[in-house]
Structure formats: C-alpha cells, structure tokens
C-alpha cells in the first residue's frame, strides 16, 4: 500500500469516527423536523390548484408580455453584491 493510500485510509477511518460522534449530537435537533408528515416545509411543492380554476379574471393585462418594466423589489436588497445592494435600477431591454 502506498503512503498516500495509507494516509487516506487513516484519514477516512478517523474522519468517520469523529463524524459519527458529532452527528449523534446533531441528531436530536433534527428529529423534531421529521414530524407532521413533512407539512412544515415552506413552499408547498404540491401544486394545490387544479387547472381551469384561477382567480385571474378576463383582463388581457394578465397575459401581456410586452416591454419589460419591472424592478426587483424583494429581499434581494439585503444581499450585498460587489456592485452594492441588489439592483434597484430599471434594466433596459
């Protein structure tokens, strides 16, 4: 066995042992999250609405796809990019 392989084997055995004991302590906290059939996850992922039933009405505006005129106005303002906070300037098409 090469030195390199031997080192790897030691490293992995040691890391497994350490990781096992560290994982134990984290386990108790995780257990709580498994309850409630996974309902707690934000963003439901299960597409509640059926087709053909939106509350959108008949206005043509809801379907328009013309010139872009929107500016991000969400939580991106709390994320600092190298150019400063999240873009608040309208972006030309």
């Amino acid at each position: 066995m090469s030195d390199k392989k031997l080192c790897a084997a030691f490293a992995i055995a040691g890391a497994f042992a350490a990781a096992c004991s560290l994982a134990e302590t984290a386990k108790a906290a995780k257990a709580e999250q498994e309850k409630c059939f996974g309902v707690s996850l934000k963003g439901k992922n299960d597409c509640a609405a059926g087709p053909g039933t939106s509350c959108a009405g008949s206005s043509k505006m809801d379907y328009q796809g013309s010139a872009w005129k929107y500016v991000p106005k969400g939580t991106c303002t709390s994320i600092v990019t190298p150019k400063g906070k999240g873009s608040l300037e309208p972006i030309a098409n």
């Binding site: 059926g50 039933t53 939106s54 509350c55 008949s58």
Partner: peptide, 21 residues
C-alpha cells in the same frame, strides 16, 4: 360545489368565472 368569481365582458354583461377561491 365551488365559489365563482364575478367579472364582466366588453359590453358589461356578467362573466362568471369558475375560480374555486
């Protein structure tokens, strides 16, 4: 049974929508 939504068409006639909301 479901709740509908009320709208109107271009001449003002009622246009009901099966909105389920």
């Amino acid at each position: 049974l479901a709740g509908y939504a009320e709208d109107s068409d271009e001449i003002g006639d009622p246009l009901l929508i099966d909105a389920h909301c």
